[in-house]
Design a protein around this nucleic acid. Sequence first.
DNA 1: GTTTAATTTCGTAATATTGCGAACAATAAT
DNA 2: ATTATTGTTCGCAATATTACGAAATTAAAC
Lengths: 106, 106
Amino acid sequence: MKKAFTKEQKQLARLAKAMGHPVRIAIIQMLLSENCCYHGDMSEVIPVAKSTLSQHLKELRDAGIIQGTITLPTIKYCINKETWALVQKLFGELFSLEVREELCEL
Amino acid sequence: MKKAFTKEQKQLARLAKAMGHPVRIAIIQMLLSENCCYHGDMSEVIPVAKSTLSQHLKELRDAGIIQGTITLPTIKYCINKETWALVQKLFGELFSLEVREELCEL
DNA sequence: GTTTAATTTCGTAATATTGCGAACAATAAT
DNA sequence: ATTATTGTTCGCAATATTACGAAATTAAAC
């Protein structure tokens, strides 16, 4: 029987997709290791035009993975802790499924 | 200084991207829980046309996450254990970076 | 009030993704 | 030989992604 996708499948796919680009991985790593930083900080390190960086920041924001606080003229970005906890939970659940040995030879 | 992306950033992005669709999450979950199965088995459960399912299987194959063995007239799919271990390692490294509390209020 | 700084939004182009049904393999069964 | 069975590939259309520079935004600094 065909079933619609579960909420968790959709969430996981959404979050994985948001992480599916080197620029966005770099942003996430930077925010995780430095906790908070600004567009400009990231722009100095990540090899992409500023406007492109903005687009990637927006996608991570839309996925809920990061959040920004306006402290004009800059914007401070950081990881959204709730969403990040969800990311860890959902991927953790997937990783907890053990790959059985027996049946999987090529 | 702008740096090119590291190999790991590119790998992680590639793998995340491959997981960034509900159909592909469903495939991965099914292969993890049943270890191996056939296109037909998945087609009965996953709400998408067979040709579309094939495309998603191909993408997961191209990313190295799954592999298929031909046992005509069927093809048996299963998780690629090496790649799956890499997925766990790379995401694990990302998750091991703790989100610091202090600086991240909205 | 004009300039400066930091970032986003707009416009645009190139490419990629997603989805479907129809047509195509490749073999087993009749 | 013909017909099922199981998947894949093809052709096509709609939409989304990625990228860049130029223009717009917003408020502080002069």
